[in-house]
Amino acid sequence: MTFGDEDDHRAPPARPQSLMFSFLGVYVLGRGVAVYSGSIIDVFARLGVSEEAVRSTLARMAKRNLLLRHRRGRKVYFGLTPHAVNVLEDGRRRIWETGAVNRAWDGTWTLVGFSLPDSRRSTRHDLRSRLIWAGFGLLQSGLWIAPGTKDVIGVLDSLDLGDHVTVLTARAFKPTETADLVRKAFDIEQIARRYQAFLAQWDTPRPLPSAPDDLARQLLLHTDWLQLVRQDPYLPAEHLPRNWPAIRAEQVFRSLAGEYEPSAAEVAEGVLDLLSPR
């Protein structure tokens, strides 16, 4: 595969909850404020999200202990729970600190091996889904690997695996080659296609000309990028193609994020009704 191909791989549209996480991460996280539901509806109307979808998303997130309701008269404001702060801080670190390209890999791998009976097929499915989300790839039957030292306690938490799982850190030794581990355990072409979809959307002279303003562009950009890097296993750069599209994609994201921020903040200031809960 040539990773510089200009195929127009379009990213799927963002779900309201994904957009909500971006909105909360940019305009609520670290500010000690709650936001009036009506002004959230106004913001999301710019993104083509209906009032019904916004209210449903807010209700679900409150039920999942991500949002707190604050009533002032007839108005309802939504603020962050400690759980939401942790989730959003993780996203912030992934965007601004970890980045999309792993240039500081120390040669270690985290290995997770498990063997579950057929009676626990549902648990096996849940574990596999969590490992993929955490950046692990399937090397061979029952053995998953991820670059670096991973804290897998959160991945395994609540699954009650007991002696059915083993977690180790290791390094590759001859005849095993790191490049072979990357190739066997991870779908490099699929990862590349995701970055190409991002570039097809955003690496243009005028991205999203139909968006009403830079606030809408900012939230769509952040949502697309966070979804992208959360699906990236963060493989070591030295074992990826030299023209790996994540490099260009990260440059585009950072450039556009800086470009949109002043205008988006000005629009948000005029739209958002904020409350400082006591």
Results as ranks from 00 to 15, higher is better:
residue 240 L to M: 08
residue 183 R to E: 04
residue 153 I to N: 12
residue 278 R to T: 12
residue 127 L to H: 15
residue 263 S to P: 04
residue 52 E to A: 05
residue 17 Q to W: 12
residue 19 L to A: 04
residue 11 A to S: 01
residue 138 L to N: 14
residue 187 D to K: 00
residue 183 R to H: 03
residue 136 F to T: 14
residue 80 L to V: 02
residue 263 S to K: 12
residue 162 G to E: 12
residue 137 G to F: 09
residue 56 S to H: 13
residue 119 S to K: 15
residue 69 R to M: 10
residue 26 V to M: 06
residue 69 R to N: 02
residue 123 T to E: 14
residue 273 D to H: 03
residue 139 L to P: 07
residue 181 L to Q: 09
residue 87 V to H: 09
residue 67 L to E: 07
residue 245 P to I: 06
residue 26 V to T: 11
residue 177 E to V: 08
residue 65 N to F: 07
residue 163 D to K: 14
residue 33 V to I: 13
residue 1 M to H: 02
residue 251 Q to N: 09
residue 202 W to P: 04
residue 123 T to G: 10
residue 131 L to C: 15
residue 276 S to N: 11
residue 162 G to L: 09
residue 97 E to T: 13
residue 73 G to A: 07
residue 135 G to V: 13
residue 169 T to N: 11
residue 110 T to N: 12
residue 35 V to N: 01
residue 210 S to W: 07
residue 27 Y to H: 08
residue 66 L to W: 08
residue 143 L to Q: 04
residue 238 E to L: 12
residue 100 A to E: 07
residue 92 R to W: 13
residue 163 D to G: 04
residue 17 Q to I: 12
residue 14 A to N: 05
residue 171 R to A: 10
residue 108 T to V: 14
residue 149 T to F: 09
residue 83 H to D: 08
residue 85 V to H: 10
residue 157 D to G: 12
residue 110 T to Q: 10
residue 157 D to M: 10
residue 221 L to M: 08
residue 55 R to Y: 02
residue 34 A to E: 04
residue 131 L to F: 15
residue 20 M to F: 10
residue 91 G to N: 10
residue 64 R to K: 12
residue 250 E to L: 01
residue 65 N to E: 08
residue 196 Q to D: 03
residue 62 A to S: 13
residue 256 L to M: 03
residue 176 T to V: 14
residue 214 D to H: 13
residue 78 F to H: 09
residue 195 Y to C: 04
residue 49 V to I: 09
residue 168 L to C: 10
residue 49 V to H: 00
residue 1 M to Q: 01
residue 226 L to R: 07
residue 148 G to H: 13
residue 108 T to N: 12
residue 267 V to Q: 06
residue 274 L to N: 00
residue 103 R to P: 10
residue 170 A to L: 14
residue 57 T to R: 05
residue 39 S to W: 02
residue 120 R to W: 14
residue 53 A to F: 01
residue 96 W to K: 13
residue 223 T to C: 07
